[in-house]
Computed example of a mutant assay.
Amino acid sequence: MTFDQAGQPDLSVVIPVYNGERILAATMARLTGYLTSGTSEIIIVENGSTDKTLEVARQHAVDTPNVTFHVLQSQKGMGNALRTGIEASSGRRVLLTADDLPFGTDDLDEDKKLDPKPHIVIGSKAHKDSNIQRSPLRGLTTFGFKTLRQIILASRVGDSQGTLIVDGDWLRSMVERFDDPGFLFSTQVVYAAEKQGYSIVEVPVTLAPDDDPGETTIRTADVVKMFKGLLAMRRRRREFAAAPSTGTHAS
């Protein structure tokens, strides 16, 4: 089942998966059960797994009247997987999420309430009404990253690492500029939208009960990598601020 240009999907859901064989089938079933109106595509991007993730994805990629599946592969790295999924997408809007749906469908539920639709909707852990249980170390890491973004990028967004629902045409027209292979990919997307003056709305979410906050081990090398990545983004601020040659325009 495919959608032609006239039947462009309302939504593309891009899910990077690494060693997710235990949770992927449940995620796919939950999304299929939720997306029962309009037309949607779910793009699973396996990226370097050592378990049976790819086999599980192909086995459970069963199209419905409302949803079509695509199972792809990319190089290892969340950013690489997201880029591959975006390039393959065709939806009017694109949801970038995780293989365990950490917020369930809260982000999509909140998005339905918004009219007109913002350019980007963020399922935000930083929203005052979000229900997020974090370990002290993880909370400190999140605060530190937010502070660095404010200082280095002058970003006003509370959480650039949440799930993102983005204007599809703009995202696809910009995707070549989003080149981080890892976790800074979504920050690049949000930063470009900020620099181009688009509307960004953060919505409240609840961390799913089966998403274990746990303790996070932060290495000095990780902090340095984060710092260097943000500095590199700032050096490219004119590139991110330049509107794509095709696509939508900020209002």
Rank of each mutant, 00 (worst) to 15 (best):
D4K: 00
Q5A: 06
L11E: 10
R93V: 10
A241L: 11
A6C: 02
P9A: 02
A81G: 14
N131K: 15
T206P: 05
L140T: 10
L35N: 10
R83Q: 14
V94M: 14
D211C: 13
L82K: 10
I15W: 13
R138L: 13
A126T: 02
R58Y: 00
A208D: 10
Y34T: 09
P136T: 09
P65V: 07
K112A: 14
I218C: 04
I165G: 01
A241F: 12
P65C: 09
I23T: 09
E87C: 00
D4G: 06
V17I: 03
S49F: 09
R236F: 02
L96M: 14
S40N: 12
G104M: 05
Y18T: 00
L82R: 14
K195P: 01
E46M: 06
G197L: 10
V189C: 09
V166L: 03
G104W: 14
D10G: 01
D63I: 07
A98V: 00
Q161A: 12
I42A: 02
A61Q: 06
L54W: 05
A98Q: 14
D10V: 00
R219V: 03
G229H: 03
A243N: 04
L207N: 07
D179N: 15
G91K: 06
I200M: 08
G229E: 09
R235D: 03
T248C: 01
E215A: 09
K117C: 01
P116R: 07
V189A: 08
L231Y: 00
I200C: 07
G20L: 06
G144H: 11
G20Q: 06
F69C: 05
E55Q: 15
I200F: 08
E41Y: 07
